[in-house]
Amino acid sequence: MEKRSLPYLLLLPATLFLCVFFIYPFLLVAWQAVSQDGALTLEHFRTMAGHWKFPTAFWNTMLLALAVVPVQLALALFMATLVTRMEKGRDLVLYIWTIPLGISDLAAGIIWLAIFEQTGFLNSMLVGLGAVEQPVAWLGYQNKGTIFLAVVLAEIWRATAIVLVILVAGMGLIPKEYHEAAEVFGASPWKRFTRITVPLLRPSIQTALILRTILAFEVFAVVIALAGTNFPVLMGETYHWQFNLQDRHVAAAYALVILAISIAFTLVFLRTLRVPREAQI
């Protein structure tokens, strides 16, 4: 009896912690989103959806995730392949490439702000080279395109390393013989990558994609630093409603929308990148 209950006893503290600090606040937020003075209502969702900024924030967030995540995946696959092939100095390169992970997202945003702002490095360089006559307002509200690009660049710079780390670990798990067998049986380096590495890496790709996509939907500090309110995103709007407009109910509705999108994408990745049990390594 004691032996059987022991695992549950050991799990209890973590479960309690999660219940008190995660599930309970979540339920509070969910309740806030659908209630007014103790009565159920969809009013807050209507307010949220009816506000002129909502569609912009929604599509900006989506487009940003769509632009950032695939580039990060491709880049990380490429970098992981390079790192895995290295014989010496592999750890050093990995450490250097993961430095951006140690920087807070707000700091990362400020670094890129220093490059793109009117008196920033990019403008100084362009003026110095004589490419432009006077500094360009890259992040001005009329330059939506460059704002988007700057945010994409900052996000790629900041968060590709997490995908890289997951993929490098995954590649290390693929036995060397599979590559050798493929090599002997006529596969070129590219074919070995597409026919052996990528399929066998599917579980890691799945993890990395889920993690990165969820984080991409929560993008906030980098956007605030680079664009302020010129480039509305869902998380920024949540903050705006909570603290500037002091409407916790609508902020809670926004939070639930982000959660719903995250769950939906997670399910899609779980389904499409599923590896049948019999085909696992």
């Binding site: 036995p175 067998a181 002997v184 085909a279």
Partner: peptide
Amino acid sequence: GIAMVFQNYAVFPHL
């Protein structure tokens, strides 16, 4: 122009 049989077989698990 060779083919090889590996000690651990190296039969691709995903195929």
